[in-house]
């Protein structure tokens, strides 16, 4: 379980996160949603240590990540997998080398064992036989899947996903969502997904946190979201005429 307690983060005079607390439970897809500039990605980066919060703490199974030294954080980071918005694959490496990279760095396995794990992960994301391709030769959806394969190669306890559907067509986006959902179930990971995609919210949102002006404005599940009377959340979720019409039919 990941707990965040009273997190504050500012860039100069711009206060992006203003005292957010939340719990993210294992085996669940925890979604952080909100409009652009609401602080979703900054909160995610505070959780994984890419940004240092001004105040507050992040606890991974009661281990206070924010107070740890660089060396202590490495041990937690070995338990973290992350899929980035732009996939963040290493351009100079093949798909196989990308997925194998964490294994090369942190395991003492021989090449055969590592290759077996890489092939397992690539098959898991339906990308068998793409081992020798370079990221530049892959489509956006394939890059995301390789990113997922790399994220799960070390069997993480915590999975962070930043905007998994950005730049993808709706069909591919659903494939990625389903994959995240399956991996969360299979590995019992504590999955935290930052998104503003409503298909993701309705499809995999076991636990949803809505951010507004850097604060936690609403918390619930995808079953609750259609019936909330929270004005700002309704304006965000039912922004289009299509979704407004769909809501009336619910």
């Amino acid at each position: 379980m990941i707990e965040i307690k009273d997190i504050y983060k500012a860039f100069g005079d711009n206060h992006v996160i203003n005292g957010i607390s939340a719990d993210f439970k294992p085996g669940m897809n925890n979604l952080i949603i909100g409009s652009s500039g609401s602080g979703k990605t900054v909160l995610l980066k505070c959780m994984v240590g890419l940004h240092e919060p001004e105040k507050g703490s992040v606890l991974y199974d009661r281990r206070d990540f924010t107070r740890m030294s660089f060396e202590e954080r490495i041990e937690i980071r070995k338990e973290i997998g992350m899929l980035f918005q732009g996939s963040a694959l290493f351009d100079s490496m093949t798909v196989e080398e990308n997925v194998m990279f964490p294994l090369n760095m942190f395991t003492q396995w021989d090449r055969k064992e590592k290759l077996e794990r890489v092939n397992f992960c690539l098959e898991r994301v339906n990308l068998a036989r793409t081992n020798k391709l370079f990221p530049a030769e892959l489509s956006g959806g394939m890059k995301k899947r390789v990113g997922i394969a790399r994220a799960i190669s070390m069997q993480p306890k915590y999975l962070f996903v930043d905007e998994p559907n950005s730049g993808l067509d709706p069909k591919t986006a659903i494939v990625i969502d389903e994959l995240i959902n399956e991996i969360t179930d299979e590995y019992n990971t504590t999955t935290v997904v930052v998104t503003h995609d409503m298909n993701s919210v309705m499809g995999i949102g076991d636990h949803i946190i809505y951010l507004y002006s850097g604060k936690k404005w609403w918390e619930g599940s995808n079953k609750d979201i259609a019936h909330t009377d929270n004005k700002e959340l309704n304006e965000f979720v039912f922004a289009s005429k299509f979704t407004q019409a769909a809501r009336e039919k619910l």
Binding site: R77, K78, M82, A88, M105
Partner: peptide
């Protein structure tokens, strides 16, 4: 700028 350095950091690599 393509977050590859962030990816290294997340993996626990210096």
């Amino acid at each position: 700028v393509t977050e590859q350095i962030d990816a290294l950091e997340i993996m626990g690599i210096n």
